[in-house]
Computed example of a mutant assay.
Amino acid sequence: MGALLSLPGVLRAEQIARSAEYLVHSQEPEGAIPWFPGGHTDVWDHVECAMALAVTGRSVPSHAAAARRAYLWLESARHPDGGWPAKFRQGVPVTGLREANHAAYPAVGLLHHLLTTGDTAFAERMWPLVEEGLEFALALRGAHGEILWARAEDGSPGDHALLTVCSSVHHALRCGAALGVRLGQERPAWEAAADRLEELINGREDLFADRSRFSMDWFYPILGGAVTGVAAKERLKERWDRFVIPGLGVRCVSDQPWVTAAESSELVLALTAMGEREAAVRILGDVQHLRDPHDGAYWTGYQFAEQTRWPVERSTWTSAAVILAVDALAGATGGSRVFLHAWDED
């Protein structure tokens, strides 16, 4: 059993455990973790929740079991032609659209699960999902090596690439390759594809559709490990005042008075990977105004011009992002190395 996760001055261990309980409470019997009880599920956010449960599962066995159920659900939810439908309701697909980052993200989650739990047998069982998901994403490569964002219901590829999506796929390719090495399944082609994405993210941002108003396009190249060092510091400094609202958190989009706990927590992950711990702790503390004291769930966002929570929902993946940010700052589990891009340090 591992020690309870905490971050002194920000969140106590019992508070983090209560936030994780909200994820368990929201999980459907088959294993899917929707946005909120009765809401829809998408694979990217579902995996984020599974990672958070694996973290708290080191000390709470029921959370560990819930994380396993979440990953096992992915087996039955696959689309017969690869990837996963972009949206499920009560376990039933409601669209044939399949997004590249959804397909790739189980690679991040399952390396995280192995580093957190040490369960090689489970990783070996789940390996086909990693391989199929990453190959689905790579089949969406454009002319320059960028990843087109999705495959439509009729099977046609999307007509543009997104910087956040490609940053997430870059992260997933690195994680998938690292997992493969640990399982005796080396995939040098995945590393080569990640190398190419890294080049494009750093040098050809013009290839991606303009989503610069979204904070994720600002920090996700760093969170995904493609932009590092001096370039990462310059990137954050350039748009810091556009997105960061002191005392409240991080805007979702630059032109709206709206901060969100998930974007704030994901910026915390990026800052932690850069070694900017003081700023990371400050932002994670700022966003605690979105915590519901009754059960530890987090409201998705806050519209500060109207001084109201919006949307009126408590998204599971928001609570998960907070937990993962705490774990990265605390360095409590081996899984935190997935977000510090240090998975080769045993």
Rank of each mutant, 00 (worst) to 15 (best):
M1A: 14
L236P: 06
R239N: 11
A17M: 01
A261E: 09
A177V: 02
E14M: 05
Y220F: 15
A54V: 00
D255V: 00
R69N: 14
E48W: 10
L290F: 08
A13I: 05
R78F: 00
F214K: 04
V169A: 07
H294G: 05
A100L: 07
L324M: 13
E14P: 05
W73A: 07
G31M: 08
W84E: 09
Q288W: 01
H341W: 13
G155N: 12
C252M: 09
Q288V: 03
A231G: 01
W190G: 06
W317N: 12
I33Q: 04
A104D: 08
G83W: 00
I222A: 08
H170M: 10
H171T: 09
A3E: 15
T120A: 15
A270R: 01
D295G: 08
R251N: 05
L53C: 05
L23S: 03
H79V: 04
S59I: 00
P37F: 13
S62N: 00
E306A: 15
G247L: 03
A325M: 11
W35E: 14
A189G: 08
D292L: 09
V169G: 04
G39R: 10
L329S: 05
Q307F: 10
G96N: 12
W35L: 13
R69F: 10
R235P: 03
E205L: 14
V94R: 15
D241T: 10
F208T: 08
A279I: 02
G118F: 07
P128S: 11
G145V: 07
W317P: 12
C166F: 02
K87P: 00
F339M: 03
H113V: 00
V60H: 12
